[in-house]
């Protein structure tokens, strides 16, 4: 563990070089994640006739601007990277280095965050110019809470993708399975619609679902849609999901490596 932390500066230097080498692709990737803008257009039209579930056009704009940003800040691609390394056997070269491959990848994907945030700035600026009423002064106390929540959402996204990638040790179709998870995530995390718009019976399960912990919660925190009374419980649930996923990944990784060692590296 201490060794892992000690290696971080070197990994960051190396990963930054890697991110810069792929910067053009990165920008295209980032721009591809523009679905929140489409959804904003839809909900903006819906809210034109009056607010629904307490959300008017200003709130909708605020919500989806936050979604756009948080989605970028929690963007990882470990499922494709690791699946590729396992399929091609490139994982072998990673395993011969005295650093955990997941740790190496985690640092790499974290170093891409600044460039992701940077590309978002002009888009967010344009949104603000289009709809000045999306801006509300953020509660200074909420900012650290938001930062914590985004960090946990990032970790959960990384661990969930890693889980599906580790399945590639046994399955050829792990990417397809991840596609199913992704569709569920898109619908239920708050990515295509604020969770507040779902019917009443769905509210409770949605609030405590891992999907909201991956996106919806930090979005709602940034947009100021969560009442301070609820923040504690929400963060605790989120932390629970992160811990659970961490344990799952550790167990699966160990078993997967044994399988890799048994069937072919």
């Amino acid at each position: 563990m201490i060794r892992c932390m000690r290696l971080v500066p070197a990994l960051v230097r190396f990963s930054t070089a890697r991110v810069m080498a792929y910067r053009a692709e990165m920008v295209i990737w980032i721009l591809s994640a523009s679905l929140p803008l489409v959804m904003l257009a839809l909900w903006n039209a819906v809210a034109a006739e009056g607010p629904i579930a307490g959300m008017g056009q200003g709130e909708m704009a605020r919500y989806f601007a936050a979604t756009l940003l948080v989605n970028q800040l929690t963007g990882v691609w470990i499922v494709w990277q690791l699946n590729y390394e396992i399929r091609t056997g490139l994982l072998s070269t990673q395993l011969l280095r005295p650093v955990h491959p997941l740790w190496h990848n985690a640092v790499w994907m974290m170093t891409a965050l600044p460039i992701r945030a940077l590309v978002m700035l002009p888009i967010l600026g344009a949104l603000l110019a289009w709809r000045p009423d999306l801006w509300v002064r953020p509660d200074p106390l909420m900012l650290p809470v938001f930062a914590l929540s985004v960090a946990m959402a990032w970790a959960l996204a990384f661990l969930v993708q890693a889980t599906f990638a580790i399945l590639s040790f046994w399955l050829d179709q792990s990417i397809g399975l991840f596609g199913v998870w992704y569709s569920g995530w898109a619908l239920l995390s708050g990515y295509v619609a604020p969770l507040a718009l779902f019917p009443d019976w769905a509210q409770r399960p949605l609030r405590f679902s891992p999907f909201r912990a991956m996106l919806g919660l930090p979005v709602e925190l940034l947009g100021g849609f969560v009442s301070p009374r609820e923040v504690g419980l929400d963060l605790a649930v989120q932390a629970g999901w992160v811990l659970g996923a961490l344990v799952l990944v550790r167990v699966l990784w160990r078993r997967g490596l044994r399988h890799y060692g048994a069937y072919g590296a």
Binding site: L7, P9, A10, R13, F14, R18, L90, S92, R97
Partner: peptide
């Protein structure tokens, strides 16, 4: 391994050397 490489395709080899310096 003659058929697999540890060097990162899109980076100069010197970057990978530097990384290995730290890792080892």
């Amino acid at each position: 391994m003659g058929q697999k490489q540890q060097l990162i395709w899109d980076l100069p080899a010197s970057d990978s050397f530097e990384l290995n310096r730290a890792l080892f």
